[in-house]
Amino acid sequence: MISLDDVLTDISLYWFGESLTGSLRLYKENRLRPLVFEAGERIGPPLGVSVFPKEIAMPPRSWVERVFDVRRWTEMPASGHFAALEKPELLATELRAFFRSFR
């Protein structure tokens, strides 16, 4: 559970840092111009995916693999859209595991 202090700190950083508009840019751009791939189009760099059970929306792995070079796909045991705030150790461990394979 996220504490009220953490929520207020997060909001304050966006508000007083005048970065709220920038943080919402991705959502606005995706709404106005959804991401669409051509048949057979591939994205080259390797991809690691952490699927958090309370995330807002996540396409099925089969859809992601049509376009991306999925090297790691992990169904996480807890958290959601704010995983870095809710479960930072869990996310950090997963990130380290993904990048460890590139050493």
Score class of each variant (00 low, 15 high):
P59V: 00
L32W: 08
K28E: 15
S23M: 14
E89L: 12
F99L: 02
E94R: 02
S19P: 04
F102Q: 13
L26M: 15
W73D: 00
L8C: 13
H81C: 05
L24W: 12
W15T: 04
E86S: 13
G80N: 10
R31Y: 10
A57M: 15
G22T: 02
N30I: 04
L85P: 05
E75W: 06
G22W: 01
E55F: 03
R100P: 00
R96G: 08
A39W: 07
L32F: 12
I56K: 11
R72D: 03
F16V: 01
R42V: 02
L32M: 10
G80T: 05
E55L: 02
T21A: 11
P34S: 02
F82K: 14
R61Q: 00
L91G: 09
L26T: 15
V51T: 06
P46N: 11
G44Q: 12
R100V: 03
W15N: 05
E41W: 08
L91M: 11
A92E: 12
L4S: 12
P60R: 12
L24F: 15
K54V: 05
E18K: 11
S101H: 15
W63P: 08
F102H: 11
P34R: 00
V64D: 03
K28D: 15
R61P: 03
V49A: 00
A84M: 14
E86Y: 08
L20S: 14
M58C: 14
P46Q: 08
L20D: 08
G48T: 01
S19E: 10
S101I: 04
T9W: 07
V64Q: 03
F98P: 00
R66H: 05
W63R: 10
L4I: 15
S79I: 05
E41L: 01
V49S: 03
T21F: 15
H81N: 09
A84N: 14
S12E: 13
E94N: 04
F102I: 02
R96W: 06
F102C: 08
M76A: 05
K28F: 08
D10L: 03
A92N: 11
A97C: 07
A83V: 13
G17P: 00
S19W: 05
K28N: 13
P34N: 05
G40T: 04
F99A: 04
D10A: 03
P60F: 09
N30V: 01
I11S: 06
V51C: 09
T9Q: 12
L47V: 07
L91A: 13
K87R: 10
R103A: 15
A78L: 11
E38G: 11
V49W: 00
V67F: 03
L91P: 07
T74F: 02
G40I: 03
S3Q: 02
L95A: 10
K87C: 14
L8P: 04
L47E: 10
M1R: 11
A84I: 07
A84Y: 15
L4Y: 12
L20V: 09
V49N: 00
F82H: 12
P53K: 00
F37H: 09
R25A: 14
W15H: 06
P34I: 00
E65R: 02
T74P: 01
L85C: 05
P77H: 07
F37V: 02
T93N: 14
